[in-house]
């Protein structure tokens, strides 16, 4: 079976912290068509929360900018999610992906955002340019809930 896209959604929202939960519930609702397991859905919600929090806390810091979220669903029960901002960008993406690394020492960040995104998604990519913005792309294979 050829892998084809069956649905697509684009959402643009403000980088306000109350939108962190909104973003993950939008993604969970988008995935619901595949009837995924609770665990698979939890992984999607967690990674989206991490990516959006990064936009709010780091990319736009003390300002409010737009977050661009694109969701795509495929006929093999997989979903890809990209979260992009036009914020400050990341100087050293390799360092940013290291566990426990954080630039926000006062904010009680754990430095585990990118490591969590990498381990919970099937595919993960991070593109960033200082002064231009950052894009995180992740894909997930959604295991079907067989419990009924």
């Amino acid at each position: 079976m050829k892998r084809t896209k069956v649905n697509e959604m684009k959402v643009i929202f403000d980088s306000k912290s109350e939108n962190e939960s909104l973003a993950r519930y939008i993604c969970a609702a988008f995935c619901a068509v595949f009837d995924p397991t609770v665990e698979a859905l939890a992984d999607v919600k967690c990674t989206v929360s991490e990516a959006v929090t990064n936009c709010v806390v780091h990319a736009y810091k003390d300002t409010v900018g737009k977050i661009y979220m694109t969701l795509k669903a495929y006929n093999d029960s997989s979903v890809s999610i990209s979260i992009r901002d036009k914020g400050c960008g990341i100087e050293d993406t390799k360092q940013a992906r290291e566990p426990l690394f954080t630039t926000d020492l006062a904010g009680e960040r754990s430095g585990m955002g990118f490591p969590i995104m990498e381990s919970l998604s099937e595919r993960f990519s991070l593109k960033s340019k200082p002064g231009v913005g950052t894009q995180v792309s992740m894909s997930f294979k959604l295991d079907k809930n067989t419990k009924g």
């Binding site: 967690c46 991490e50 960040r109 754990s110 430095g111």
Partner: peptide, 13 residues
């Protein structure tokens, strides 16, 4: 019911 790395920061803090 849900926790991300911010919750981890809360625990460690």
């Amino acid at each position: 019911s849900f926790m991300d790395s911010s919750g981890l920061g809360l625990i460690l803090g």
